[in-house]
Each structure stands twice: as structure tokens, then as C-alpha cells.
Write a protein that binds this DNA or RNA. Structure first.
Lengths: 347, 347
DNA sequence: TCCACGTTTTAAAACGTTTGCAATCGGACT
DNA sequence: AGTCCGATTGCAAACGTTTTAAAACGTGGA
């Protein structure tokens, strides 16, 4: 507002608006001399184009939309901050900005997404945390609107652009790591909700076990609803206090792994002497909880930066075949895992 | 894009565009019957107004801008996520959205802010993490552009709209808490950078000491550059291994307090038996680091929600006298503080 | 001198709203 | 019946850009 307008700038230069517009966009149809004169004057007077006007005619907003996922009142991890920072970093390289919408109390995430798309305020959207059957994806695909998802669906028949952490690979790696340390009896603390990442990670673990082909390997799984703290603790304890206790327990994600460590030390177990624990995500608390949780870095920020690039190319090129990408999580080896206890090894 | 336009909607209803526009905005000059008919049809056909066009004529974008503060490559705490979530929640109640700009590698935060303001894409901005002499504030004040700052300046002569945590009060409270537990010898691990919050917190501590008027109270301060891990550890150890060690050490913020706890247990001290530690911020790791850090909840999310409301009223009412607000941090009493050690008490 | 042609510039339409002002429509009043 | 008035509605300008189509301008060849 109150900024210099194109018309005013043109007036000062005694040139038509059209010419100025073209000159600033670097159109070679405009004489080089004029272009330089205009660019110079624009800088001189501090001309900043009015985006609304540009958007109105060009149909492009220069925004990428993001609907903040609804979340519990208490629990905000670093995911969002990491993700948005990465997105911003990725987008700025392409001269785009980020537009964030929040879901009001009474409304659905889908309806907000619809508004973002149809108000023309975004050229594409990023859809985080893909669930099992996601109505957001269905809508976007139907509308043929550019988007990239963070996460994928189990049913690979639905084809769309996505980027995901290769968490099955990570869980395979976790198994191999522990197996090589002598562990044979494994525990897994999982969630009972039907999230895609749960299936992927469990599958990664089971595949690794199958690949090893060792009939002595045992896997005990205990699950609880995702945000139910009490049930989670109970699930953890069902493993810890089992008649034959696993020597290594893996948490589906760090919060679960940290609970395993807490309950284990409450039960008088020493980590990693009596029990190895491995998590996934590498949340900040993982480094501070003694003795330091071995986990996998999900590389959220990198992923988001990558997603930004993918989305921009989707917006510009509208590729026919979907682009997908897997990001390999990185093992962060801390002190919560170790060789299988001697006592068990003798049995 | 491709959405229904106002003209099309008007055509279907056989009414002029102007009337439809007025009807949708609830203008009472339009007959109630017509208004209902239009609203009904709009819902029916799924009409979504084109924001660019609206913005162009009204001059208002419906956006609040936020320039993501430049941050180190490694260190992202939950601040950003909390803050943005809170902002989003607060804004959505007023029908506004959030527009996030990132600072590209070579450019300054100020230049990005300038673009946000002058491109007309935001009706107001939120400026986080106020420093000592902030050029962003100078620019915004000069331009008379609506904004609310998170944080304030020491020099209270500069008057603008801000909201800040009342961290001096929190540090006073921390002192009183520890004093009442018998502590007389205090340590403070601070930073050497000239941030406003550092001064406020140190002042809060010193004021509380002065208020108590007890000549036996000792305060030892050790500082290090903010992100210099090595220097921080050294500063912490200078307190821990001092000839006369403080019985209670306060960290300017949680990361420092956690370092204090780490180094203390490395030195064989038991917390809180041998040493009390208190922090500020209540980052997630504070709960997991044994034995649980006593700290203050900065209520970032609440603050951001509040800021959203303030900014909206600033945008709409343009108040002449600046609005300011202090948010009282909330003590989160965990297990890292306790009575002064017996051995010391006897001296 | 005139024409044709390539280069450069201009004029004007379009994007989809909002809004000031004029026009229309009924009915009430004279 | 003619006026006037309030309640509705329609018309058209305006917002600041981009872009199409046409105009202006030189320049060199005939």
C-alpha cells in the first residue's frame, strides 16, 4: 500500500505502462537501453509490484499453501517448525512464498483446503501426514490441483506426488544392528491406529526378520491408541514384565521409545545393560533422556526442502507421471543399545 | 482458479454482480429475500471469492505476514511450531490467514520484510524475537505499518505494540522459591550476547535479591556466547567447580539448565540433593532429562494467539497509544530443585 | 521518394471484485 | 392522477498489473 504504482513509475519515465511492465520482466522485445533505464529507475524509486494485481491477471499467486494439521492441545513436537522452515528454505529459492491456513474449531481440514485452492491464493499445496484413506488427496486429485504429499498411502494404486521417509528401511536397519549384537528376542511398542507409517515400519521390521531366516528370532508386539498415555504405559509394561522379557525393544517413534526407557528404569533395569531400546524420529528429548536414545533422524527439514522443489516443478511442468521420492533416515547411534545381556546369552 | 466467478453466479440468478456482492457481504440495503436467495445459491454452486480481486480493490489482503527468523542450521526448537500454531489459531478466529516469508541466503531479514509490506500482501506483520536495537521496528514505525512484536526493547522510550513474557517476574519467583528452601549461594549461567531477555531475566533475579535485603545472599554469574557449546560448558563448570560452589544454579533458559544438570552429574553431583537447578522455557527435553527440570512454561502458543488478536485490532482500529501485554510464565515444578544441602546449611 | 519490413513502443482489454451514484419500483400522500 | 419518498437494484468506475493487437518509427532497398 502507498507504494509506487507502475503507472506512476511510467509517468516519471515518460513511457507507457506496458513498456515498463515488459522491461521489468526482461522482455527482449524491449530495447536493451530502455530496459536498463527502467530497471534502474525501479530500483531508484523502490518500486515493488502489487502482487494482488499481478495475481489477478496472471492467475498465479506465487504462494504455496499449507493447512496446519489439527493437533491436540498439549502436544506439539518440533515437526511443524522443522517442516515449515525447510519448506520456506526450499520455496524461497524459487521465489515463492508460503501461505498457512489454520482450521477453525467447527470446520473440517478438507473445507479449509478447498478454500485455499479455490480462492486462487495458492498455486499448489503441500499435504502433510498422509493417513490411510485421505479425503484431501481425493479432492486434490479430482480437482487436478498441483500438490505434493509428505507421506504415502499403503495402497500404491493411488498415484500422486509424494515424498516419504524410508522408514521400513530404517526399521530393517534397526533389526540388523540389534541382531548382530546378539539379540534374538525383540519387542515392538506400536500404536493401534491405522496410520501408514505404522504399517511401513512394522513391515520393515518383519521383512528384516524374514530375510535373516533365523527361526530363533521372536517378536512380541504391544500396541496402544496413539495419544493414550495410560494405555501406552500399560503396553510397555506388558513387554517389560513378561515372563520372558525381550532383550531389545523398539519404539515405533521416539515418544514410545522414551516411555520404554522410563518404565524400564522404573522397573530397575539398566539401559543398555539389561535392555536395548531404539526409537525413530530423533526428537530433541532423545538426546537428553539418559543414557541417550539410539534412534533415526527423520530429516524432516531436508524432506520439506525437497518437497518444495518437487512442488514447484509440478506447478510449472505439470508432469503426467507422478514424482515420488524416498528419504533415507540416518541412524543416530547413542547409548541405549548394546550387546545382548550375558545371562540371556547363556540360555 | 476455474472456480465460479461472481459474474457467473449473478448470471445464473439473473441479478447484477453488484447486488450479489452486496448480498454476500450482508449489506442490509439489499432485500432480505434476495440476500437469502444469493447466499443459498452461493453455497449451492460452491462459490469461493477470488481473493486477489477482492484484495486489489479493497486494498486489504486478509493476510498477516511473518518473516521466519534466520536460524542456525542445527538448532530448531519447538518455539517456531508453537508460535505459528498459536498465531494460526488466533488469526483464524478473525478470518485472517498467515503468510510466511523466508529469508534467502544472500538477503537481509529487513529487505524481505520490506517486500512483504510493500507488495501489499499483508495487512500487518508479527515480528518475533526482538533484539536490542531492531532495524525491523525502526522501519515499520517509520512506515507506520501495523505490527505487533513478540518481545520488547529495554529502552522503553521506543513505543510500539508488543507482547512479552514477564520473565523478570519468573526469575524473581525462582529466586524466592529457592531462598525459601534455604539457598543463599546462587549461580546464574547466562549468555554474553546483548539480548533483551537476558537483561530482563538477570534484572528480575537481582531485584528479587535486593527486595529480600539479605546480605548473606551471593550471586555468581558465568556467561558464554549464545550458541557456543564449548564456552557454555566451560562457564557451567566454572560454577560447579568453584572453590565455594553455589547450592542453586539457574539457567537463563532450558538448554543452559540442561547443560548444568549434565555437567553436574558428570561431576558426580546428585540433583537435587547436592545442587538445585532451575531453567526457563519448558522445552520438551526438560521433562525427560533426569530428574526432570524445574522450569517455567513460557506459554508461547498462548502468547501467539494473543498477539494475533492484538494485531487484528491494531489493523482495524489503528489505536494511537500502543498496546502492550505481559504474559506471566507458569512455574513447572519438577524434581531438579530441593532444600539446600545439610552440609552447607551447617556452615 | 516511396515501400516494405523489422524493431520498438503504445493503447486498450482483461482479470474478479467492491462501491459510489443513478435508476427503478411501489406505495403513500396530496 | 400526479408527486414524492424510501427501499431496492443496476451501472460503471476503479484497483494495478499483464498481454494481445496495433501503431509508430527507422532503415535500407527499389
Amino acid at each position: 500500500m502507498a507504494g509506487l504504482t507502475l503507472r506512476e513509475l511510467a509517468a516519471r519515465l515518460d513511457i507507457s505502462v506496458g513498456t515498463v511492465s515488459r522491461a521489468l520482466s526482461g522482455d527482449t522485445a524491449i530495447a536493451l537501453k530502455t530496459r536498463e533505464r527502467v530497471t534502474e529507475a525501479a530500483k531508484q524509486y523502490g518500486y515493488v509490484p502489487n502482487m494482488a494485481a499481478r495475481q489477478l491477471v496472471s492467475g498465479r499467486s506465487g504462494f504455496v499453501g499449507f493447512v496446519i494439521p489439527v493437533r491436540g492441545p498439549n502436544f506439539i513436537d518440533s515437526y511443524l517448525g522443522e517442516f515449515l522452515t525447510g519448506l520456506g528454505e526450499g520455496l524461497v529459492e524459487h521465489g515463492m512464498d508460503l501461505f498457512i491456513a489454520t482450521v477453525p474449531a467447527g470446520r473440517s481440514e478438507l473445507s479449509v483446503l478447498r478454500h485455499v485452492v479455490e480462492s486462487g491464493r495458492a498455486d499448489g499445496v503441500v499435504v502433510p501426514r498422509i493417513g490411510e484413506a485421505d479425503e484431501r488427496l481425493a479432492y486434490l486429485l479430482d480437482r487436478n490441483f498441483p500438490f505434493v504429499a509428505h507421506g504415502r498411502m499403503l495402497d500404491s494404486s493411488a498415484s500422486f506426488n509424494w515424498l516419504d521417509a524410508d522408514s521400513n528401511a530404517a526399521f530393517s536397519e534397526a533389526f540388523d544392528l540389534l541382531y548382530d549384537l546378539g539379540h534374538r528376542h525383540f519387542g515392538l511398542v506400536s500404536i493401534s491406529d491405522p496410520m501408514t507409517f505404522r504399517h511401513l515400519r512394522e513391515r520393515g521390521l518383519r521383512d528384516a526378520i524374514a530375510r535373516r531366516g533365523d527361526p530363533n528370532v521372536i517378536l512380541d508386539v504391544a500396541s496402544a491408541p496413539r495419544f493414550d498415555r495410560g494405555a501406552t504405559v500399560a503396553a510397555v509394561n506388558s513387554l517389560i514384565h513378561a515372563e520372558r522379557r525381550p532383550t531389545a525393544i523398539i519404539g515405533l517413534f521416539d515418544e514410545l521409545a522414551l516411555t520404554i526407557m522410563e518404565e524400564a528404569s522404573r522397573a530397575g533395569l539398566s539401559i543398555p545393560r539389561d535392555l536395548s531400546v531404539v526409537g525413530f524420529d530423533n526428537i530433541t528429548a532423545a538426546a537428553y533422556a539418559p543414557p541417550g536414545l539410539t534412534t533415526f533422524e527423520a530429516r524432516t527439514r531436508d524432506s520439506a526442502r525437497e518437497i518444495a522443489g518437487m512442488l514447484v516443478s509440478v506447478i510449472e511442468k505439470k508432469p503426467v507421471t507422478p514424482v515420488t521420492k524416498l528419504i533415507a533416515p540416518k541412524l543416530v547411534a547413542r547409548a541405549s543399545h548394546g550387546p545382548v545381556p550375558e545371562t540371556v546369552r547363556k540360555l
